Computed example of a mutant assay.
Amino acid sequence: MPRLFFVGGNWKCNGSREANRGFIEELNRAELPTDKVEVVIAPMSLHVESVVRSIRPEISIAVQNVFINKGAFTGELSPSAVKDFGLDWAIIGHSERRQIFGESDEFVGKKVEACLRASLKVIACIGETESERKANKTEEVIFRQLSAIKKELTRVQDWHHIVLAYEPVWAIGTGLTATPDQAQQVHETIRRWLASNVNSDVADTIRIIYGGSVKASNARDLASKKDIDGFLVGGASLVAAEFIEIARSHLLKHSRL
């Protein structure tokens, strides 16, 4: 069975009630073949409730981050609270969390496990910096990040609730994008690692999506690659027409299956 194409929109620390309202109205009117693409949007926590109330039911909402537990952790979201609110997804390990807030590979792994324990599905982000790529350390970095996640998972089936987002840090918000061949090479490498270190079923079925200055103008070429199963979109996810076009980019891939 082909892997269901996945497009996530990470709004980061952007949005207003008025801007969100216009975006959602346009997205609700759009022709999106939701039987062939899974769409998930991650607004700021402050806006989650209003977006949930107004978005079409086929589109899911994610939070952009959680902590590993509930309790005396001012400003954080617990996985159990996110699930209790009725949400199903969380973005974990984004490079901005790793670089700005100092989240280690080990901490990211623990957060992934905490989400799965609370029955939250996870968009788990991995990727190398520009200096790491120039030093030919891409594989070393992503294998280390994957190993930290694997260490926390006690059941193979947990991987079926994870979408892996390969986001080369040097391409996030820079206007630079990995070429389709560069992205495909890393996605294929991730799949081989999973086959060797988890099992072949997980490697075949897990969705590995690409993030890093994805736009409508490059989404179709990226989507045409065998091991690219969708996108985690940053800046372009704030423009409804652009995001809708990216969500439709799977049609080219689907037509070639």
Rank of each mutant, 00 (worst) to 15 (best):
A195D: 05
H250P: 01
W11Y: 06
R192W: 00
P33T: 01
D227K: 01
Q157K: 15
V63Y: 09
S213G: 11
G75D: 02
E242P: 03
W193F: 12
Q145H: 07
S50I: 10
G75S: 11
V141R: 04
G212M: 02
F67P: 02
I41G: 03
W193T: 10
V39H: 01
W159Q: 07
I206E: 03
N69K: 14
R155W: 08
T138L: 00
V233K: 07
I41T: 04
E139D: 07
S80E: 15
S224L: 14
E26T: 13
K110R: 11
W89G: 11
G102K: 13
N218Q: 08
Y166Q: 06
N218H: 07
L77Q: 12
K226S: 10
E139C: 04
L4I: 14
Q185F: 08
I228R: 04
L27P: 01
A42N: 06
F6N: 02
E26Q: 14
A236P: 03
Q157L: 09
G71T: 09
V233L: 07
E167M: 10
E152V: 02
R21G: 00
V239C: 01
R207Y: 00
R17G: 10
S104K: 09
V141I: 15
E140Y: 15
I59L: 13
I244T: 02
G22F: 12
Q64N: 09
S104T: 15
I59N: 06
E49I: 11
W11L: 00
E31M: 06
D35F: 07
E76L: 11
I100F: 11
K110V: 02
A148E: 03
E58Y: 10
S50V: 12
V214T: 06
I149V: 14
W11C: 03
T177R: 05
A62T: 10
S45I: 05
S147V: 01
S200P: 02
N199W: 05
Y210A: 00
T177A: 15
V7T: 13
E18V: 08
L146E: 02
N136H: 13
N10L: 08
L27A: 07
V40N: 03
R53V: 01
H47R: 01
F107V: 06
V82N: 12
Q145L: 07
R220S: 13
A72K: 08
C125I: 04
A148H: 04
V198F: 02
W170E: 10
A171S: 15
V163M: 07
E130R: 11
N218R: 00
E188A: 14
V198S: 05
E38L: 02
K151D: 12
L46Y: 14
H160C: 05
G230R: 12
T179W: 12
E31R: 14
V48W: 00
C115N: 13
S16Y: 11
E31K: 13
K83I: 07
W89R: 03
L116V: 13
G8Y: 08
E140I: 05
D84Y: 01
K215P: 01
E242F: 05
E188V: 04
D105N: 15
E96T: 00
G75H: 12
G86C: 02
N65P: 04
E139V: 15
A236D: 09
Q157N: 15
L27S: 06
G75L: 12
S224W: 00
S104A: 10
V169D: 06
R3P: 05
I209M: 00
G175T: 11
V122F: 01
T74I: 11
Y166I: 06
W170S: 12
E49Q: 13
R117E: 14
I126L: 09
A165D: 03
N136L: 11
